[in-house]
Design a binder for these strands. Structure first.
Lengths: 186, 186, 186, 186
DNA sequence: TATGAATGAGGCTTCATTCAT
DNA sequence: GATGAATGAAGCCTCATTCAT
């Protein structure tokens, strides 16, 4: 693992434990086992570190979604695959998940980062739009629908992180997904 | 408006615009038109200011909920009244709403404040529990249900703040509430 | 003497001894006997301190010039009075003089400071222009003339600081002024 | 052009644009198209780079003076040749000229460099001393005379850099030299 | 109640320099 | 000769808080 990766890994952990604003770059360097200057050799400033982290986290999530979506057919099953992918990913990477939540709620990202994220998730968003256009989903405004999905997913993920045993109880999982699906389905 | 209130009003605004950590007490004092010392005369420290703010914001929300709930009968209509109260309150006090969201996502409050909040919202939570016990709601874990409701409500409120015209379109509003209700109802 | 003045006085000294860039604000605070924060309470940043210093130094010089010019008549005598005022001021305030030289040579000032300086010295510059218009001075470009005068004056001042006894030797002083005058006179 | 020369050329430019203290060695390396280590491969440290630069600049000036002085007889014409050489050199190498000015005003050089410079300019200084001894110049202290000459020359050079057309207007050039000569001549 | 100058620990960042490749 | 990741001391500045008035 390169020093750059050490820094990124330490940063997520501390950001989640203490919040971005309450985590000094000096602490990140120290706990990553590198010199203060090394952090700034790899990232021009603290903000850039946060942005790089966001990209790497969302990329990890996206990979999981695409993997789990591969070969699934039937619209409800596809949405279910995405839902399970997010929840599964969150349970496997609780730190990354919590960081993603923090960021979505608070931090203002660079325009550049925002653009890259939009490009990355274009296909997934297209999947959701299909549900709207086919009338499978309620006739809600598109952006509202996205927000509701995101918020619902976040809660499911959070709950499963705290109660990982749920993942082995298909009927409870199905109930949670039902709550998700019902909030969207027409 | 007393100086204390000037400080509180300026603080919410700045906290929302810049985040709590990025808002110096000096800026609050300056924009509130008081001296730096005055802020610390009314609040022992910055954290106390934040906690006082949270209490006053949630109190304002609770008053609205209780007012709108008064005299409503029928379980679904009661839940609907709460939903409409929160959304209506958010549209009338967008700043307060945004502040509430920030706080819920990030800030660690005093144990004392947490206890007061719990006491304040006891009745509302009892209303939700009733839905679980009567089997009206899905058989989801209680805390999960609370989180889902909260997240759903937040999204509805956020959307209505950005598109206030929705409040005058009963059918769209009904559709949004349907999304909320369906996610909970058995 | 206020803390603000302590800071200014310490700053000129250190800037002259070490150069502006090589003088940490922390050293200024320490040697002025104030806390680091105090410096930044009075000046928004190091640059603002430098600019404030320049204004106060040039103001001191201007007062001396105006005092010594008061009541003098005859063009050559007036120019001589200015020359003597600058040299006398430099000998009395060697630190301020050296600081002025450094600044003139190197530092980029705020547009605002530049404007104030121009306004302050308008009358003195008008005196020089008179010499040009009356044909008393060589028909050199105006800005060139100003620069030559300034450079000549600087050298005279510097020499007199290092050899203050010259101020009591009228004939040597006259010879130095002659060198100045001859470089300008037609 | 060797990498060493690339570094030197980039360094003068940046030193002039930003000042020596405000120019990071990393920026020099980058804009010179070499690695950070390469700079320190050719110069033991930043100071050594500055000293090397000073020597090369002054050497370039001296060559020009000696070339233009060659074969000129008559004391005033010799002084005039030096004056013209400096001005001409400055116009041809404005960057080098500005760097020389900065250095003369501010930077502390190595004792070794100072000694070399003194040796290089011994002959030129001897030329000036001759004017003092013969009574051609005013009976001013020797060091004062040198400083005045230097300052005058600097202003002439600076003016001609900004108004290069002057070099083709013999009468204006003569007037400027007259100002120089008059300040020295008895 | 109200003021605002003063404090100083601590945050972010810079940069000359080293060294293994 | 050339590279560039790594270093860490040191610089500038912020800001919650105090206290004498």
């Amino acid at each position: 693992m390169s020093k750059r990766d050490d820094i990124l890994a330490t940063a997520v952990r501390l950001f989640v434990e203490q919040g971005v604003e309450n985590t000094p770059t000096a602490q990140i360097s120290r706990e990553a086992g590198v010199a203060t200057g090394t952090l700034f050799h790899h990232f021009p400033n603290k903000d850039a570190l946060v942005n790089a982290l966001v990209l790497s986290v969302k990329e990890s999530l996206l990979e999981r979604i695409e993997r789990d979506l591969d070969g699934v057919s039937g619209y409800r099953d596809q949405i279910r695959a995405v839902w399970l992918a997010v929840v599964g990913w969150a349970v496997e990477h609780p730190l990354l998940y919590r960081f993603k939540t923090q960021i979505d709620a608070m931090v203002q990202l660079d325009a550049d980062t925002e653009a890259q994220l939009e490009a990355m998730f274009r296909d997934v968003m297209q999947l959701v739009r299909a549900g709207l256009e086919s009338g499978t989903f309620k006739a809600l405004p598109e952006d509202y629908l996205f927000q509701v999905m995101d918020a619902q997913l976040s809660q499911a993920a959070r709950y499963c992180i705290e109660h990982p045993e749920v993942l082995d109880q298909p009927e409870r999982l199905e109930l949670m997904f039902a709550s998700f699906w019902d909030s969207l389905a027409a």
